[in-house]
Design a protein around this nucleic acid. Structure first.
Lengths: 206, 206
DNA sequence: ATCCTTCCGATACGATTGTATCGATACAAC
DNA sequence: GTTGTATCGATACAATCGTATCGGAAGGAT
């Protein structure tokens, strides 16, 4: 990386970027993506504007990083839910994924809000749309695999088109995000839980 | 309204408000809610900043009006889809509502984008959240009535909790909005149509 | 200790924001 | 016409925005 004779001061860019990511997370959950400005991010993460500017050349780069940051976290959560032999059945896995989206704690609630903001921005920003489209592709692939396994295990309601089911589940996941983002109280969670159960039952034909 | 002796110039406030609503519609579909500024709205609607300011005291009032404006249009579209005897069956009605959401023309595409933006804002703005929550309540009531009718006609898959189904459908509607907002091409519509068909089949037990 | 390079923090800049202000204008009543 | 009021269009204002600039702090290598 550094091909100079004299090596100067070096900072832990990795840690700093993460703390910036966390800061944006908090701000966006509090005031939305519109409340995210370079100055506010700097203040929230305890850095100076200059430091933030060094790490992210432009604001777009900043927001893009925040999106990747958030995607990575959710992807990590989902990757822990494994469907397959010696693991969860399809029904259990599907239920686990959907329930995991519910805003049962502050972090999840914040994340739901952030995703709503990112989705809205993706509607008018091709760069963001591309990232989310790629995410969609990955999710579709995972879902197809899970549904294939479910069909193998005869867990699926017969006579259903797996591709259509996958699309339906993707739509439902998006809907859950959006619903969770503007959920006023904890009580509404039970309604959503019932909806999730109903969805699992419908898909597995129980 | 006017209790003065001398009556001055009067403008057609109604028409103007609508043209402003349309202007915001176009802007938000193009650049998102963040691109909506008083000046831009004035330019897009062919008015001066002063005229817009007279009609809407504050920007929040402006956006709130745009939300109501958009809600009214979609509510009107939905109200034309009637479920009941001598009309659509539940399955037909449900399918009609969901298909009507798809971005099959520019107006619908724009509307999907605007709603995504409003939903995101509702996540951090209590005023917007309240409006959408009230809309949710109305939708829930309509859906409950439709499901009641479906059960009466024995259109529903047996053994399902109507309340859970209603919640599930609401989530799916939200998901459709969000998916439509960032849909890149026309081709993806077929996938969504298949998903809608699958959903109708699942709910009606076909 | 002295270099050299990287990094930081402060400040500056121009653009854009929401809102307030104000003279000019339009129009109904006289 | 004149008058009184509602409305308009333009401009002013302070705040905030993203970004650029720059002098000095910082810290390994010598």
């Amino acid at each position: 990386m550094c091909q100079n004779e004299r090596v100067p001061k070096v900072v832990n860019s990795q840690n700093r970027r993460r703390s910036v990511g966390e800061a944006i997370h908090r701000i966006a959950a509090r005031e939305g993506l519109e409340g995210v400005s370079v100055r506010v991010v700097a203040a929230e993460s305890g850095l100076s504007v200059g430091a933030v500017q060094r790490e992210f050349r432009t604001k777009d780069e900043l927001l893009r990083f925040a999106l990747d940051f958030s995607i990575a976290e959710v992807a990590d959560r989902f990757s822990r839910i494994r469907i397959g032999p010696e693991s969860l059945t399809f029904a259990e896995g599907m239920r686990a994924v959907l329930v995991d989206l519910l805003p049962t704690d502050d972090r999840r609630r914040a994340q739901a809000r952030i995703w709503a903001a990112f989705y809205a921005r993706a509607a008018v920003d091709p760069g963001f749309a591309e990232v989310l489209a790629e995410l969609d592709t990955r999710a579709r692939a995972n879902l197809a695999a899970a549904l294939g396994y479910a069909r193998e295990q005869e867990e699926l309601a017969p006579g259903r088109d797996p591709e259509a089911l996958a699309e339906l589940l993707l739509v439902m996941i998006d809907g859950l995000w959006l619903t969770c983002a503007r959920l006023p109280d904890e009580d509404s969670l039970d309604g959503l839980r019932a909806a999730i159960d109903a969805a699992v039952d419908l898909v597995t034909g129980h």
